[in-house]
Every structure is written in C-alpha cells, then in structure tokens.
Design a protein around this nucleic acid. Sequence first.
DNA 1: CCCACCTGTTTGACCGGACGGTTAGACTAC
DNA 2: GTAGTCTAACCGTCCGGTCAAACAGGTGGG
Lengths: 211, 211
Amino acid sequence: MPRNAPSAAPADAPDRRVDLIRTAYRLFSEKGVHRVPLDEIAAGAGLSKGLVLYYFKTKENLVLATMRWALDITAERVRQAMSKASTPYGKVLAMIDGIWSGAETNRRFYLLYLDLAGHAARVHHFTELSATFHSVVNALYAEVIAQGVAEGAFGIEDPEEGAAALRAIIDGLFLQWLQEADWERLHPWYRDVCKRAAIAYLARTPGSPVA
Amino acid sequence: MPRNAPSAAPADAPDRRVDLIRTAYRLFSEKGVHRVPLDEIAAGAGLSKGLVLYYFKTKENLVLATMRWALDITAERVRQAMSKASTPYGKVLAMIDGIWSGAETNRRFYLLYLDLAGHAARVHHFTELSATFHSVVNALYAEVIAQGVAEGAFGIEDPEEGAAALRAIIDGLFLQWLQEADWERLHPWYRDVCKRAAIAYLARTPGSPVA
DNA sequence: CCCACCTGTTTGACCGGACGGTTAGACTAC
DNA sequence: GTAGTCTAACCGTCCGGTCAAACAGGTGGG
C-alpha cells in the first residue's frame, strides 16, 4: 500500500504527491477542474499519466486532495495574519489584509473555490469538504466577532449570524472581483471596500433601526 | 438563417428555441453545464440532438443563450419586486424579498450563476455577458442607495461602493446557502440574515469609525 | 561479494465509452 | 418545387482508467 511517510525516507526525497497536487492546483484554477485532463497535470509535473492514477486512484480523488490542500494552506495563512493583531478592529483589518493577500494568490484560490461550491451542491463527496471548510472559517470569524462584542466594540447580537454576514461581504466581493477584466489593478480597491464594509457592518451602534 | 420571429408565425406555434433553453436551464443547474450532454437536453425537450445544433450552432451558444435568458428573467423579477415599495428601507426590503423569492428558484439561478462566474474568468465570450449583468444589477442597487442617501436615510458615501457591498452581502449569503445540506429549510433564515445585514450596513450613522 | 528476489515506483501502449459536431435525407407547408 | 424543420446514423476525438512490463533499491542467502 503506497501510503505516505515511507519509513526510511530521506529528507530530500521528492514527494510526487505534493508535486502533482501543486501542479493540479495551478492548472485547475487556470482552466477549471473539468477542462484539465490528467495527461496535462502529469506533463506539468514532468511525470507520466499512469503515475497520477497510481497515487490517486481516480481523478476525483486528486481533485479532492488538491482542494483540501488549498483550503488548508489558505486557512492557515489567514490564521497567521490574524494572530499578529490584538484589538478587535485590528484583528478584523489584519484578517482582511491576510485574506486579500495578493491578486494572483487570491484569484487562484477563489476560482478553485467556485468549482468546489459548484461541486458541493451536487456531489456528495465534496459537500463534506465544503462543510468542513465552512465551519473552520466561520468559527474563525465568530471568534473575532465575539471578542469584539465582549469588549463593547461591535454592535452584533448573534456572533454566528455576524460571522455569516462578515463572510458574505468578503466572499461576495471576491465573486465580483473575479469577474473583473482588470482584476489585477482593482485588487487594492476591492480590499479597501471590503475593509470599510466590514467595519461599517460590525460597528453599527446597538439599537440602530433593524427591522 | 433560422432567426427568431418568423414572419408568419401563429401565436400557438411552439418555439423550439425556448423549449430547449428552458430544458437546458433546468438540467444545467441540476448537474452543472459540463455534465449535461446535448442528447440529454434534446431528450428532455422531446426532440432530437440534431435539432439543438440546428438552432444553436454550438453547445457554447446554447449555454450563452440559456444564461442570458436566466439573467434577464431574474433581473426583471427583482425589478418588479422593487417597484412595489416607495420608502428607501421599504425598497431595500422589497428588493431582498424579491431576490430571495423561493428556495427552488434561487438554487436554480445561483448554481447556474456560479458556472457563469467560473466561465467569465476564463472564456472571453462569457466575460461580456457577466459584465453586462453586473452593470445592470449594480445600477439597480446604486439607484436604491442613492435615493436612500438623498432622503437622509442611509449613511453611505459612495453609491457605487455601497452597491458593490450590498451586492456582496446578498451574493455571499447565497454562496453559503447553496452549500448547505438542508438548503430548503434554511432559506427563510438566510433571507432574514440578509435583510438585517443589509440594513445594518446601510443604516450606519455617518461619521462612524471607518478606518 | 554476488546473485536471486521482492517490494514499491514508473512508463507507454492500449481500451472503451462519452460526446460535440456533421451530413444525407425525410417530411412538412406553402 | 422550394425553403424551413427535423431525424437518425455516423465520425473523430478526447480522456479516464487498465495493464503488462521495465526499473529501481534494498535484503538475505550462498
């Protein structure tokens, strides 16, 4: 059974799995999952197609693994960015800076994420992955919000709901940004809009006119 | 050239084009554009595959036409819903009610819209369609916001930016809702969250702490 | 020290099904 | 007869997946 972590693996042993996942990640986000044949991924990693099936039994498995990998490193990056700030507003702004880290990176991730969302609604295996990521991210957001509420900075009543709304602002802006023709140049503008909108939403004074 | 509106068309003449588009719309949203072969669309409409290519030269054309159709009727529906209200808050709430019109309808539309967004970022033909829809929708939002600002109800500074943020809240919540396993039951909850978040964002008192 | 031998890796050739698109011709209705 | 509509059969290609065989590198026995 070709599991990972071979007992006598030297540190410099190239891990084909990671090579393939990284190449797949790049190609999937460039062209969309269903428009990338296995041959192309293998060629991109300098390997033969047979090997892809050798490591990941099926294409679906490779897609799943690639998405999981992208989700993991992205969540970790955001977590890192947040940890550097301390005040509630500082944490939110740091988080948004961490999320809008760079045009290229963001585009890669969100295009793949769109594919995931589409799959999650239709194929059961992806639903699970999507749900996991969802709870990870929303927990992160809810934590920040809860802290801000506790310190009296935010006027949110339900942290769960606040997390959903905050995330909606971020995801929704990304969705618009992705479809811009000159996305590279507009990246900073969308990031700033995101910050202002997030603050505006969170900072409403308690008791404002909510239907 | 098989254009629409034949000169001597009786009112009861079945329009194959619309039949096909409607069937395609249903199937595309159920399974995703690239997982629906032309045979299936034709069969679903009770016609032969050849006819699909006869009317829409290529599959891409059919996809384009289907998306345009879905975009049109959706925008029109929202426009109708908005027109019934008069006050700024009333208009926003009516708009959101119009958008979150029903679980089934919303799911159909947004799943197809996800496909469009993915295509728009990669295939030029779809970019145009996406841009058109984008400006139509944002203009609608900006109008509502501008009116609310003029009447002193909203604390938004830039209506363009406000429209983008408002739309982000809506789209972002839909994106989350789509991935819920029990989306049917959660539809009302997301709609209410959407209303509260929209109002909270729009109603912030001018001069609140914006970075 | 060399040679079988095994286990995990890698490749290239190949298969079969799916699917977009083509075409020849039938069937209208005027 | 002619122009528009419609079908069924067909084609070529793409692509996920299979398979037999080659190729390491390590291990143990002689």
